[in-house]
Simulated assay, not measured.
Amino acid sequence: MTAAPEIAPDSTTKRAPEPEVDPHGRGKAERYTVFFFVFVPLLALVAAVPFAWGWGLTWTDVIIGAVFYIVSGLGITVGFHRHFTHGSFKAKRPLRIALAIAGSLAIEGSVIKWVADHRRHHKYADAEGDPHSPWRFGDDWRSVAKGLFYAHMAWLFLDEQKTSPKRFAPDLLKDKDIVRVDKWFGPLVGFSLFAPALIGGLVTMSWWGAVTAFFWASLVRVALLHHVTWSINSICHTIGEENFEVRDRSRNVWWLAIPSFGESWHNLHHADPTCARHGVLKGQIDISARVIWSFEKLGWATKVRWPNAERLSAKRVSV
């Protein structure tokens, strides 16, 4: 199995500039922008739950949605991200194929495209060439708002320079198993959307059960996972804590840790991209790292790149 290539920064790529200290409260404006950008739509969804409970939402929908969210979400974090993009561990062939399939169920793009885009992001993080930096328009609050939207989802449709898989994912293009899964992305999308409806219909033995399962366990589940994943691109490069020195503006955002399965400990990830654990400090919950640990104990994963104390200490930001 070919190892994931290291994507080093260009020698011409400089550290992303820090925002100037300003007396007008731009930092607060950024936080308010993030609040309305993320929480208002989420609160609207939460408010809809009690109104729908019992007739348009049941425990069947919740359980089906949760299972698909966990499987597809871990497929992205453990599979697409830590394994395929950064080579944080080696996976036995059945696990490698399973992770590629699970990540495809998230409907965030095929495995090769996803990996190529993310490797490109690391090569040019928060500098020219980064496909989804929220700082491409400037540091004032209007530019940050525009940049958040761009980094969150607009880049998927407006990115001027399409990522080349031949340049950023040549190892995956040589893997017949992964190329096969990549080509089956369309059918996997169909399964991800319609399998919950089929399960809901069979469990309740009703068309209404199929309809509600499709709405909550397919549409809402996919939308929620998308926004959580996209928040790592947008929010985790805008606000949060910097515990480790990085050349970009990646930050840790604690309240996204559980829904993102540990991906929001983004500052350490950019400081040490191949590390299998992103939440390395006390109290930083990293579900994906625990899953990788389980795979290692079962013998399904080998050569796991766990945190190195000396390497972390050298990168630690002085308090």
Rank of each mutant, 00 (worst) to 15 (best):
T229H: 04
H226K: 12
V179T: 11
S192Q: 09
V179R: 14
A213G: 03
V222E: 01
L202H: 04
V203P: 03
F194P: 09
S218V: 14
T204E: 15
F191Y: 13
W208Q: 11
R180I: 12
A195I: 14
K183M: 12
W184T: 10
W207V: 14
F194C: 07
F215L: 13
L219S: 11
F191P: 05
I232Q: 00
L188C: 11
P196C: 10
M205I: 11
W216A: 08
S231K: 03
H237I: 02
I232A: 10
I178T: 11
S206V: 01
A210T: 04
K183E: 06
P187T: 09
G201K: 04
W184N: 04
G201F: 07
T204N: 14
F194S: 02
L172W: 13
V228K: 06
V211L: 15
D175Y: 09
N233G: 09
A217L: 13
V189F: 14
D177I: 00
R180F: 15
G186V: 13
T229Q: 01
G201T: 06
W230D: 00
S206C: 02
F194H: 13
V181E: 01
G200E: 07
G186D: 11
L193V: 14
P187F: 14
G190S: 07
W184K: 13
T229I: 02
S192E: 10
V189G: 08
I199W: 05
S234H: 03
A217S: 15
V189D: 05
D182P: 01
A213R: 04
T212E: 13
S234I: 05
I232V: 11
V179H: 00
L224V: 14
C236R: 00
I199K: 05
N233H: 14
K174I: 02
C236E: 04
K183W: 11
V228F: 15
S234M: 07
F194Y: 14
M205P: 00
V181P: 11
V181F: 10
G190V: 05
P187A: 08
L198M: 15
L198Y: 02
V189A: 07
A217F: 06
P187D: 04
I232N: 01
V228M: 12
W184C: 15
D175K: 08
V203M: 10
S218K: 09
S192W: 03
K174A: 15
V211N: 07
R221I: 09
L225R: 07
L172M: 05
I199T: 08
W184I: 06
V203D: 07
A195H: 05
P196W: 03
A217H: 10
F185L: 11
V228A: 06
V222I: 15
K174P: 01
F191V: 15
L173S: 13
V181L: 08
